[in-house]
Write a protein that binds this DNA or RNA. Structure first.
Lengths: 246, 246
DNA sequence: TGGGATTTGTTCGTATGTATT
DNA sequence: GAATACATACGAACAAATCCC
């Protein structure tokens, strides 16, 4: 279900007390972008958003600036904000840096997971699978968020902050360049990563993670190569997954 | 020389045309923090800064928010902004993540430096040495910036952005925890890094860089251990450097 | 504890800059 | 190319919270 920008849905008390109104607007917009309710390039006029959400332009602007710092939106001076449209080069750049940071996540997490944490991860993947089967609109976001859940277990606030940002941009990239209805994160790969981490096998964990990220990027970007069309076998095997699940 | 917050010094045309006024305020404050003209914990009232710089609170606030996103300043709701005071844990966190990203810098740069780039790096180190001998106030900033210069050569906008932010925070940390008048970045270590990169020896380059960053952090943080006092030999050898240079 | 001074949080009008016809 | 329409950039003023006697 796409995110309706609906101020009624979120209690204002929570928004005003804990996280100020700009944070509220920030959260709404961020979610809408990640679930592709707001696609790349869509203009984000301060006025319209403010009216819709019942806040003034000032607070919208602050939210937009925060999103711009994360490079989820682009702000052109005097021309306003729009949802970012990362180039292919930027996409590669994001994944290069992200891979390096995920290496650190794996290093720190490997062998240190409690049984509860393993369970949390496994259940998350189950949720991904459900979202994929049901062709839920936020499947990409859910698949991406697996990496955030994992990063939270690395016990480094800074690393978490960076991963959050990079994962969000990755989701935007996959939405932009990936094929629709295509699993962006292979769920079996997520499962293999969990297994290696649980078994305290850093080398395998890292290899699995590294291959996984490579795969995610290339599954998306290769559609733009010479022969953009997926092979018949690919198509069939993928649709089979969906049909079987029903 | 500490940064005087002096609006006259910078032409407004440049500030208004290229980078808007918030960017100008941002740049001034950032520099002042890095050169420790504004020390950790110092309050940053919107009004005073705005008056000093001839802009309204609106633009000051935007600059402060941008600095807060980088965690160079802390903003407490309803209580305003102040220069960040990173904890020891945050310091370690910064250096952990930074080390991982510098690894990527080394990987990408190693063996790919043009003779001109090598020269630029060598001259920068010479400048550091000069600043150190003259006990220039911005020595820490200059030493830190070596890593930014290097990151620029890695040809990755995102990596550069992250390194810039982490190096700035590192400088703040060294200013907070390091001993005054102490070389924070060992200049010979910088030279060794350049040499290894020039020689296209990735393994040595990485080892040198990694040891270097370890050294920087521990030279600063170990002052807070049980025997905080530096040994006599350390003191003497360091002051000898300064005297010899004269 | 209370009240005045100070500082932040926000709104909104106006000016400025950009795109379009 | 000029004029128009539009959205942003900025600043003054007000409201609310915090600090300090």
């Amino acid at each position: 279900m796409p995110v309706a920008i609906n101020p009624e849905k979120i209690t204002y008390t929570a928004a005003t007390k804990r996280g100020s109104r700009p944070d509220y607007v920030y959260a709404v917009l961020r979610l809408a972008i990640l679930e592709q309710a707001l696609g790349p390039g869509v203009k984000l006029p301060e006025d319209a958003i403010g009216e819709q959400l019942g806040v003034s332009r000032t607070v919208v602007r602050r939210a937009l600036e925060k999103l711009a710092a994360e490079e989820l939106v682009e702000i052109a001076p005097n021309r306003g904000a729009s949802v970012a449209r990362p180039t292919i080069e930027e996409a590669r750049d994001v994944f290069t840096v992200r891979t390096e940071l995920e290496r650190l996540v794996v290093e720190r997490v490997c062998g240190n997971l409690t049984p509860t944490q393993v369970k949390v991860l496994e259940q998350w993947v189950a949720g991904e699978e459900r979202a994929y089967r049901e062709a839920a609109d936020d499947y990409i976001r859910q698949a991406a968020e697996f990496h955030v859940i994992l990063a939270e277990m690395a016990d480094s606030p800074l690393l978490l902050k960076y991963i959050k940002s990079l994962v969000a941009r990755s989701a935007l990239i996959l939405g932009l360049y990936g094929r629709p209805n295509w699993p962006s994160c292979n769920m079996d790969e997520h499962r293999s990563i969990i297994a290696a981490l649980r078994d305290n096998d850093p080398k395998r964990a890292w290899k699995t993670m590294s291959d996984h990220l490579d795969g995610v990027l290339h599954r998306a970007l290769d559609s733009w190569g010479e022969d953009a069309q997926p092979s018949v076998t690919e198509v069939i095997s993928n649709y089979a997954r969906v049909v079987d699940a029903e």
